[in-house]
Nucleic acid binder design. Sequence first.
RNA 1: GUCCCCAUCGUCUAGUGGUUAGGACAUCGGCCUUUCACGCCGGCAACAGGGGUUCGAAUCCCCUUGGGGACGCCA
Length: 477
Amino acid sequence: MTAVRTRFAPSPTGALHLGGLRTALYNWLYARRHGGEFFLRIEDTDRQRSSEAHTQGLVEALRSFGLDLDGAPVLQSSRVERHQEVARELLKRGFAYRCYCSPDELAAMREEQRARGEDPRYDGRCRERRASRQGVDPVIRFRRPDIKEVVVRDWLHGEVRYQNSQLDDLVLLRANGSPTYHLSCVADDHDMGVRQVIRGDDHLNNTPRQLQLIQALGWEPPQYCHLPLLLAPDGKKLSKRDEATDALSYLRSGYLPEAVLNYLARLGWSRGDREIFSMSELIECFGREGLGASASRLNPDKLKWISQQHMKAAPAARLVEGLARQLERLGLDPEGGPPLAAVAEAWRERAETLADMAEAARWAYAAEIELDERAARKVLRPAAREPLVAVREALAELADWTAADIHACVETVAERCGVSFGKLGQPLRVAVTGGPVSPPIDATLFLAGRSATLRRLDRALAHIDKRIAAAATPAAG
RNA sequence: GUCCCCAUCGUCUAGUGGUUAGGACAUCGGCCUUUCACGCCGGCAACAGGGGUUCGAAUCCCCUUGGGGACGCCA
């Protein structure tokens, strides 16, 4: 049995984006599924574009989604000495050489190649060079081995063959001595003991080069799995500028992390007809057999549905925690209103996200509500006055403010006034919540609390009276 | 341009030579109902095109088309 050690290796040049999160998830799931280890490596060898803030952001983002790491994150930049050592080793053993070509010279070379209709690639002009060039710091180039083809074995793509002639002598160390991607990636994976490299499809073409390097170093290559890319809903490439690609934005908008992960897992992976997975079920079920090879588009509607399914199943405590955060975002104070757990229970089946939940529960926490004009016009009409007055009285005298008692009370009043439950319930709902939509009326009044209920009923009654008065006075004009 | 990858309902997908091509989201009807939602029942909807192989292809092979990726002293 092979040991399982996976890693997620993003470069800290921006926030964690959805595609990256999915790659991280698959690596994490595979490791957890097989009792292996999952590492995070920050590929920050390009100091220009990397930032400390982004590194922190990536670490925190993974934590927010519950993808726990084995060991501390590895900063690639902290390993340059090791990379240089590997490069020197290659140099010593003749697998690499110093190249004195200037960037301008290389650009000119590529241009000529293109003009001649050839593929632009380094022609190896420094391969046999002995002498150094005055005042020029050389780069170290890998000496591509002289074999006819390289075969990449991939979980998803099977055997992918590359003609050696398509590969060229890649730069291992820059003129300033810093390592480039291929070198550091290969060296780090080896040193970290990574056995499964699960990464985006955009790396498939890099793999033959890395394989050659690994071979020259006499190391054991890892298993490869190149995942298809994620596309925007319109089928276009996911743009980094798009807000919807920032993984954390989904948490901010009130999606449960496990819902986002469930959704992402199912984009490119399946297990029969099953759609909903808890995190532990995901770990239990995840496997390479279920992986698909074609790119998939993001579908916000499906995400919402999955989110709702998770809202229905989530432990109350998780909902409460998230709801508190969302209420805070809306500037509402949970202290003044009903218990969050009660609100969460009332809405877990009718909110797609925690943000929806908070927004829908606004009336339960806001000091005052605003009457929805349409709803008020429709149900707060003169005919509703009498039943509302009656129910107000009955509610004021109710011994216990419980949902069951409220229900009985409303039912009794409706009967006494000769109207259906709904005919009384809807005006009541609009009076108390301001709008036409809320949980069942008994739960709604219970959540609003007695004093707010009575106060708002009085206001609604006043509203109706104003209407009656307006109708009595001939309209001007 | 060269190389590489991919291709089943609008979307996510099941399917691995013989199925009425299944499920889910969305959508459209209906039921339930105190509003909304949940839930339940039902409808619409797909094998990109063309060649092979085979008694038989969504499944295997080739070509075309379409989409994506890679061709850096970026990662």
